[in-house]
Design a protein around this nucleic acid. Structure first.
Length: 565
RNA sequence: GCGCCCGUAGCUCAGCUGGAUAGAGCGUUGGACUCCGACUCCAAAGGCCGCAGAUUCGAAUUCUGUCGGGCGUACCA
């Protein structure tokens, strides 16, 4: 057990003290005896009501048939003192509130300082193997803005899960087989011939891909091979073009993602599932399990058995597998062939239909569907000149990832795409993003870090250094702004725990802003240089711990922590 | 039609398993640098939490209905 979650510890302690206070009062006959649940403890919104609060007395009003405030007063008078808390009080309708004491503040700073970059780690993952699959864009063209959000989200989520004690593998699933890929090959072929023999020489496939990138691929092929494919057998030519284009696109995607600091452990190819027979193997098992039946010449999956609205085709009447069949085989591979304990699929919300379908597939194979989780994020609403820009990959109207990075920094993109709840629509105002000024909170957070760095440096030149955590007299840090900053530092482990539990890495960008705010307030209200030396050094130590936490979380999110700006 | 997601301040969004006077940023208004970085801070104004019921001592939060927006509902992926 990694012990660095001081808030959690204080909450548990208070919960225990309240329960014991009740039992003691019940023993003495001051309150009637009854079964009790573990008292809930939370951090009140308004710090005037203390640092921690329990609504236990309110919830006991009914069973005890007594005014909640009265119950609270009796419990508090029976509660033992504890070193973590300086005092208890009863407020409002009957909340039991506790104020954190010097010992708690000291332990926060000592822990954060001693653990340094490891501060905030948790072990709720217990070393389980978890795969996070994200982006998985079709390799039929460049990635767009939606992929950027998915990329940042999946990557940040992976980092959060690592901090929470999981062994994480990042995976990109490459759809390099099937209809869309064939169509892509034909599109390149058409452009190739058109570029050599004129626009009207060859019909462009219906529903083909119109993006400029297709023309670029064709031009590359001409540059390298001239017209040598012109008289080739069409099927063979399409295969060549397809393979060339897909390979090239994957290289481009890999490079684009790398610019965003997204690196994968595995690029998993759909085609490999066909080649090694796993798709057939999976379908055979489904058949053997009695999950399939024949109708209209196709093979159907009994999805309705698992809560799906209707059954789905697994093998088409032309003998080809549907994507659904391949998806089931792929997820079977994740669990059974590679032994992941947990799999998280990060999808755009337009894929939400996959949730029940994939889970149904797992159930039909006898795999516990609760091991498969989904993170759905709403697509990005791109705004330009105050209007939504509609995008379509097939018509070639896209803002690509690399376009985006040409305009704004990686730091801003990573921060921005990770600053909204997954299922909220994310409005991306291009005009605002392009401005690249301090409207973006990433600069606010980075400024806090830079400010501390230069201050530490400047004061060190004047011979003033931070005191060591264990030598710091915490009593010297008693200003409101100082306590608020320490409390914010103490929140990190809890934020990481919740971000991992709920798959919400955006919590950490929000946390960074709150921490920076607490620091900036502290900086404005509390002087260091002019203070008495021991106090000054204690305050510097607090600054140094703040710097360390800022840099720690920024690096976890792969956002730079500049020492000066 | 059916299913999923979202409706909170002028705008963009928080609000944890129900709790105290619903918060933040931007914007607006007014203040704060002879000072360790003003890319900062402090304060004010601004809300029938889409609407209507229900449960509860207590609802932005749970349930039902309803209106508005997005998405899905192919032998496409």
């Amino acid at each position: 057990m990694i012990k660095n979650n001081m808030y959690s510890e204080a909450k548990q302690t208070l919960s225990r003290l309240v329960a014991e206070g009740y039992l003691s009062a019940a023993e003495k006959g001051e309150l009637s005896k009854t079964e009790i649940a573990e008292p809930a403890v939370e951090v009140p919104k308004d710090s005037r009501f203390g640092d921690l609060s329990s609504n236990f007395a309110l919830s006991m009003a009914k069973p005890l048939r007594m005014a909640p405030r009265k119950i609270a007063e009796i419990i508090v008078s029976n509660m033992k003192r504890n070193a973590l808390f300086s005092s208890y009080s009863v407020d409002g309708p009957g909340f039991i509130n506790a104020f954190l004491g010097p010992e708690w503040y000291a332990s926060v700073l000592e822990t954060a300082s001693a653990m340094s970059d490891r501060y905030g780690y948790d072990d709720i993952g217990k070393g389980q193997k978890v795969m996070v699959e994200f982006v998985s864009a079709n390799p039929t063209g460049p990635m767009h803005l939606g992929n950027a959000r998915g990329g940042v989200l999946g990557d940040s989520l992976s980092s959060v899960l690592e901090r929470a004690g999981y062994r994480v593998s990042r995976e990109f699933y490459v759809n390099d087989a099937g209809n869309q890929v064939d169509l892509y090959g034909k599109s390149v072929e058409a452009r190739y011939i058109q570029q050599l023999k004129g626009e009207d020489s060859f019909p462009f496939p219906e529903n083909g891909y119109h993006g400029d990138d297709i023309k670029e691929r064709a031009a590359e092929l001409i540059a390298e091979h001239g017209d040598e494919y012109l008289n080739m057998d069409a099927e063979k030519r399409q295969k060549l073009m397809r393979e060339y284009g897909i390979k090239k696109n994957i290289e481009l995607m890999r490079a684009d993602l790398a610019r965003y600091k997204v690196e994968y452990d595995t690029w998993f190819y759909e085609s490999s599932l066909h080649e090694n027979g796993e798709v057939k193997e999976t379908v055979d098992i489904l058949k053997k399990n009695g999950m399939l039946y024949e109708k209209d010449g196709a093979l159907w999956f009994k999805g309705t058995l698992f809560g799906m609205e209707k059954d789905e085709v697994i093998v088409k009447s032309n003998g080809f597998y549907t994507y659904y069949a391949v998806d089931i085989a792929y997820h079977r591979n994740k669990f059974l062939k590679r032994g992941f304990d947990k799999v998280v699929d990060v999808f755009g919300a337009d894929h939400h239909g996959h949730v029940i379908r994939f889970k149904a597939g797992m159930q039909a194979l006898g795999i516990d569907p609760s091991k498969l989780d989904f993170v759905l994020y709403q697509l990005v609403d791109l705004q330009r000149n105050g209007e939504s820009v509609r995008m379509s990959k097939r018509t070639g109207k896209v803002i690509t990832l690399s376009n985006l990075l040409d305009e704004i920094s990686v730091d801003a993109v990573r921060f921005f795409f990770n600053s909204r709840q997954n299922e909220s629509h994310l409005e991306f105002d291009l005009d605002l993003a392009v401005k690249e000024d301090s409207d973006n909170p990433v600069y606010y957070v980075q400024y806090a870090h830079a400010r501390i760095c230069t201050m530490l440096k400047k004061l060190a030149e004047a011979g003033l250094f931070p005191s060591k955590a264990e030598e710091t007299d915490i009593g010297l840090l008693s200003e409101q702004a100082e306590k608020a900053l320490i409390k914010q530092i103490a929140m990190l482990p809890e934020e990481i725990r919740l971000a991992a539990r709920d798959y919400e890495p955006f919590r950490l960008t929000r946390y960074l802003v709150e921490l920076a705010t607490a620091f900036h307030s502290f900086y404005t209200e509390v002087r260091i240089k002019d203070a008495e030396e021991k106090t000054a050094r204690a305050r510097l130590m607090l600054c140094d711990v703040t710097r360390s936490v800022l840099s720690n979380v920024l690096s976890m999110l792969k956002i730079s922590a500049p020492e000066q700006m």
